[in-house]
Nucleic acid binder design. Structure first.
Lengths: 240, 240
DNA sequence: TTACTTTGTGTCCTAATTACACTATCAAAT
DNA sequence: ATTTGATAGTGTAATTAGGACACAAAGTAA
């Protein structure tokens, strides 16, 4: 048995929604070649909780605090260091030859407006890429992304986490398109609206869209209090 | 930053069903004191996949192969080594002072008859303990057990994994009690039977119970083929 | 033969789901 | 001022699923 202990990193799948499709934050490690794009991640400190490490990595990258974060699981097989060939990255983690990396993956939901790549003053620049356009990523990050999508799909069926992807004020159409984007299937407009309204976890505001070249839409906000009531009853099924 | 790398272990929550309640395999590390009971687990080898490590640990412990295993997630905060006081265990993992342990937790579903503690010829003896009776475990294992129960509850709603806990031939009543035990809520007998039969993933055998002091029950087997058909349609909701 | 135990079944009522199409309201262009 | 284009917003009917509920049947044991 090799006595080397593995390195532990956290990788984050940060989802954002642009009112049309799901996007993910990726770090461009050179060209525009997707095989050189990676999920944001870093080694954990020795004194750090796993969840805190993920929070830190995201804040270092985007400056966003109070981010919705959820663990996906642990990834990393012993061949990972051999499969990937990025010597620079290997050095950057102070890798001894033969040492492996185990990564604990997280997924995160943020309001896209909270992170605008070129406005950021952070070292590595991450950029938003449509989830559908990603067919290759560095390391095992494609597998992690895939797991993140699955976890998100499941999770949104039992908890109202989608609101983390929308601004405080949003329209039913935006919420509708969000659910369609996450679940990757069309949902009937009227049935969706009826269902979401019956849940009674969103409240209409005294405000409508303005400046849009069509009928302005009613704005709503997520009603956390009413949702808390539901969970106390053991509610865990949004029926999608 | 401390340069020590953490140790990685796998811990397994092995569920078994005795036709009445859910049980878990725990290792008795001394007395009958539950604070000294722990989930089976071990350090991973450096050349080992995470899933393989979990498979190995279980086989070393119980001799069972082809076990249903699913990752729950990674656990372990930097204080774990301080919180727990078991010096013997610390030594057994060759722990440097200050080194932390991160554990990747798995849950596993086995047929209880496949592992009978005292018939085993394995070093550490694990024993079956009713899940409901466990209110304390060593390390952070109670937290892991709790996560395992939650994961199992969710998972059984979308995949027919419960059959891993039953023998090849089982009765509808046994399946019924299994679902009640996992979901921790009563399910109406007739409604349960109707629902499970409509799914069409179990097939009656030309065989009935015998030797029981009551009306003998029809035996069924899980029909994997029909289930595969369902999944191809994207079916993922058992409606519990 | 009786007592005991568990199996196995059907109906009614309510709630949830699906499929489906037209009018209303705004900005922009003419 | 009128038209065009775009999206918002709404209801109903038919089907399907879910929940509550009680009694006869088939075996063993006494």
């Amino acid at each position: 048995m090799n006595e080397l202990n593995p390195h532990i990193s956290v990788d984050c799948v940060v989802f954002g929604f642009d009112f049309e499709k799901l996007n993910v934050l990726v770090i461009d490690r050179g060209s525009n070649d997707t095989s050189r794009m990676a999920l944001p991640g870093n080694l954990i400190y020795n004194y750090e909780h796993l969840d805190e490490a993920a929070t830190r990595v995201l804040e270092e990258l985007t400056g966003i605090k109070n981010i919705y974060l959820e663990q996906i699981g642990a990834f990393g097989d012993p061949l990972r260091a051999k499969k990937q060939s990025d010597q620079e990255w290997l050095k950057s983690i102070r890798s001894e030859p033969g040492a492996r990396v185990i990564t604990v993956a997280y997924f995160s939901l943020v309001k896209m407006a909270d992170y605008i790549p070129h406005a950021s003053s952070f070292a590595k620049v991450a950029s938003w890429v449509s989830v559908k356009e990603i067919s290759l990523l560095a390391f095992d990050h494609l597998e992690i992304l895939s797991a993140a999508k699955d976890t998100l799909k499941q999770k949104i069926k039992i908890q109202p986490i989608g609101f983390n992807l929308l601004p405080e004020k949003f329209t039913l159409s935006q919420l509708h398109r969000l659910y369609e984007a996450i679940l990757e299937k069309p949902l009937d407009k009227r049935n969706f609206r009826r269902k979401i309204q019956k849940l009674d976890i969103i409240s209409p505001l005294r405000e409508k869209q303005s400046g849009v070249p069509h009928k302005p839409s009613q704005l709503y906000k997520f009603n956390k209090e009413k949702y808390e009531l539901l969970t106390k009853i053991g509610f865990d099924n949004f029926g999608f």
